[in-house]
Amino acid sequence: MNYHWDWQFFFQEADDGLKYYEWIVSGLGWTTAVSLASLVVALLLGSVLGVMRTTPSRWLVAIGDTYVDVFRNIPLIIQLFLWFFVVPELVPNSIGIWMKQDLPYIVTAVVGLGLYTAARIAEQVKSGINALPRGQRFAGLALGFTEWQTYRHVRLPMAYRIVLPALTSEAMNIFKNSAVTYAVGILELYFQYKQIIEKTSQVLEITIVVTLAYFTLAFLMNRLLAFVEKRTRVPGLIAGTGGK
């Protein structure tokens, strides 16, 4: 193969005065920021939706179910485009202008990725709650807890621990999915990957480095959550030991 290997270029200065490896570091920073912020949004909203779908209220269930159906059945990149290009045109003009000119792009990206992932988390939380024996709710109610208190003190603490392995894989997915936010102007790792290819054409080196970077992120996330899982394991449950 007459490919010209060159590992030195990472330390060369690009036309903005930074070195190429610094582009990668900055991309890693944005990837991490977008992913973690989206994860927080997704966990909060996903938990609320998941709980709604297990309540006795038919309305709350319908809202939760509709949300999950809508957000799971439209591709992520299109959802991001809807938030970025379409929503600002549908709201009143002054708000639209504000969204387009003053709202930092990372907010749009986090909303898009967070709401998308929330639908998946809602599924996990729901199945976690439904996996609990009905008796736990009744026991809570018998103790004089309100419906909400049975969630707060009895069911959710158990449900989270049961679905933690599934949440781990969603948390790892969010790092991978964050690559798509390049399409709405986030200068994250994949954007920098494309940029460096254009500037240097050293496709193989940069692919190796960026792939390793994504590996590392996935691995760190996995280890972090494995640690959490270990600390929160429910003694005596098979489900609590799953996921490795």
Partner: peptide, 11 residues
């Protein structure tokens, strides 16, 4: 596109 034309020429 502007980004991929050079690699596509080379490969």
């Amino acid at each position: 596109t502007s980004q991929n034309r050079i690699p596509l020429m080379q490969n």
